[in-house]
């Protein structure tokens, strides 16, 4: 699904150059569940944003289905996000003024669907996360776990190839966390999705097929960086 080669990302901050990513090499396979851990400020979220086409690398290549995200035009990369990538956020990022169903429907807005098909897909997505009876509720009327379920429905409704999750259980209690991870695991398995998940929670990370550690902008597996694009089992 992804092949990253020598990916760096540097920022200018306070007159200094900060290497958020200092050369990441990794291959993420189709239908793989990869967890990324590491201390705050070591590049986890930056890596996720690059995988999602929300940012571009300073150097190196990010191949997504064989296409270089870094060389795509803004319109092309926007199209990739609209069709192939679903995001799940720690703080859910639901639009507070919109009911759950409309929040989910927003993900279908850029696609060429008629209204009936759009509503049917929204209904299926909400059903998949067990929130059919909460379709008309505003985010503030939902619990944290329910809000994250809406966030998952919004990520899944367009039937993407990849889910990118940034601390999806970071704002949830343990019971709800386990429910959400069980739900994600089931959906990823049933739909054959690739899941890349940033998490501080080792219990959550342990559910993944592979765990990478971000240290000083480098992605390490079992203490060593992956080079040459070999996938670590």
């Amino acid at each position: 699904m992804y092949k990253l080669t020598g990916v760096t990302r540097t920022y200018r901050k306070g007159g200094k150059t900060v290497d958020a990513l200092a050369g990441v090499d990794v291959v993420i396979g189709d239908r793989e569940w990869l967890a990324i851990q590491g201390p705050t400020g070591h590049g986890k979220t930056t890596l996720l944003q690059l995988l999602g086409g929300l940012d571009r690398p300073t150097s190196g290549t990010i191949l997504f289905d064989g296409k270089n995200l870094g060389e795509m035009t803004e319109a092309e990369i926007t199209r990739v996000r609209a069709t192939s990538i679903g995001f799940i956020f720690q703080t859910f990022n639901l639009i507070p003024t919109l009911p759950a169903a409309v929040n989910v429907e927003l993900a279908l807005a850029p696609l060429r669907l008629d209204a009936a098909e759009r509503r049917a897909q929204v209904a299926r997505a909400l059903d998949a996360v067990g929130l059919t009876d909460r379709a008309g509720h505003l985010p503030a009327e939902l619990s944290g776990g329910q809000q994250q379920r809406v966030g998952i429905a919004r990520a899944l409704v367009k039937d993407p190839a990849v889910l990118l999750a940034d601390e999806p259980t970071g704002n949830l209690d343990e019971t709800t966390r386990d429910e959400i991870i069980d739900l994600l695991a089931q959906l990823v398995r049933d739909r054959g999705l690739t899941l890349v998940m940033v998490t501080h929670d080792s219990t959550v990370a342990a559910r993944a097929e592979r765990i990478g550690q971000m240290r000083d902008g480098r992605l390490l597996f079992d203490g060593a960086p992956v080079t040459g694009g070999d996938r670590q089992p």
Binding site: G52, L54, E74, T78, R81, F87, L106, P110, K158
Partner: peptide, 16 residues
């Protein structure tokens, strides 16, 4: 700002 950032993450083009 976060709302519009989220919409961009969902694939909303700038014109939308």
């Amino acid at each position: 700002v976060r709302e519009f950032g989220t919409l961009k993450a969902l694939g909303w083009p700038a014109r939308r």
